[in-house]
Design a protein around this nucleic acid. Structure first.
Length: 333
DNA sequence: GCAATTGCATGATTT
DNA sequence: AAAATCATGCAATTG
């Protein structure tokens, strides 16, 4: 798993992940879309803003999972240049990609009603919940499990091949993405600095076993949800978190020093490193998720989009995702 | 000196 | 009406 902090380093690696995003969200695939899928994040830096028209959604049952497995396999075989020596090899396993894609869809409906009960699709977007000021606790049913689907997905899929990217680079040419936060992390210790690149993913993180482990890890829960503001998505890369949810679900901040939070990206094979801290504010605190610029940029998040943080209850691991706003059609009777 | 980052204050909004 | 929360701008600090 690549590891990135959210600094505003920018550069080629961001594009690579956006290419991967595009692959994961590829609308041409015969992929089950039980719910409309955000499409804006799939495009590159020149993509239109996040208000792209929604794809016509055809509810499909999960009997289509096997078809989607094939879809990912075919994605792998179609997109690999036979002679790519310098291409960045993400080697993302299809099970992981499918898992993330499934999560992406499923979490639009955290409670996930059965298909036969489907109503006109109501995305859980901030615009639909003007009263919901970002509090996860006001968000209805928040948890979901992944364990039941894990064996079928993870153990039967071959590893996917490299995903071709537009701009080929040798891994050693990629920018380092672990920067200041590491320095901060080790400022008061003599721990050796570690550096990683995003060009290749550690083998140990790509195996079907690790995927199965991830999927089998149990229950995930939405612990924080926030509609991003203009200042959140500004150049600073600093997101103000809802105090209530931060205090309830994120690690307690006993000192002024920031806490480094590692959060797996729900869509990309990346672990983001954020600096979680607070500011004193009047008699209270403001909770800040710092170093989020790269995450925001990679996902093309803008004001109005939604940040969602999940927690894996067992190991206390976090997963983060940005939800693009979709203006849904209301033609459905 | 400049750009990036960090810390804080203030005012608007919500509870 | 008061308190709490949060968005935002700006000054200070750091690299």
């Amino acid at each position: 798993m690549g590891q990135m902090d959210g600094g505003d380093g920018g550069g080629g690696h961001q594009y690579h992940y956006q290419a991967l995003l595009a692959a994961v969200h590829q609308q041409t695939l015969p992929f089950p879309h039980p719910l409309p899928v955000p499409t804006g994040a799939a495009a590159g830096p020149d993509a239109p803003p996040h208000n792209a028209a929604p794809q016509p959604s055809t509810p499909r049952s999960f009997a289509d999972w096997s078809a989607s497995t094939s879809a990912f396999t075919s994605l792998a075989t179609q997109s690999i240049p036979a002679t790519s020596t310098n291409a960045v090899h993400y080697s993302i396993s299809p099970c992981y990609a499918f898992w993330t894609h499934y999560m992406l869809n499923k979490n639009v409906y955290p409670s996930f009603p059965p298909p036969q009960e489907e109503q006109p699709h109501q995305l859980r977007l901030a615009n639909n919940h003007p009263k919901d000021a970002g509090s996860a606790s006001s968000f209805g049913v928040d948890s979901f499990t992944t364990a039941s689907m894990a064996p079928n997905i993870c153990t039967h899929m071959p590893p996917i091949g490299p995903i071709s990217v537009k701009e080929e680079k040798k891994p050693e040419d990629l920018p380092r993405v672990v920067k200041r936060s590491d320095e901060l992390e080790t400022r008061n210790s003599s721990v050796e600095r570690h550096s990683e690149t995003v060009g290749t993913l550690p083998e140990s993180k790509q195996s079907p076993e690790s995927c199965a482990t991830k999927l089998n890890s149990g229950e995930y829960q939405v612990i924080l949800r926030k509609e991003l503001t203009k200042s959140d998505v500004g150049n600073v890369g600093r997101i103000v978190l809802p105090k209530k949810d931060a205090e309830a679900s994120l690690p307690p901040l006993l000192q002024r020093d920031p806490v480094i939070l590692h959060m797996d990206d729900m869509v990309l094979p990346v672990t983001w490193k954020f600096k979680y801290r607070y500011w004193p504010n009047n008699k209270s605190r403001m909770y800040i998720l710092d170093s989020a610029g790269e995450f925001l940029k990679t996902h093309g998040l803008q004001a109005g989009d939604v940040l969602i943080i999940y927690k894996n209850l067992a190991p206390g691991k976090f997963i983060i995702r940005g939800e693009k706003v979709i203006h849904q059609q209301t033609t459905n009777p």
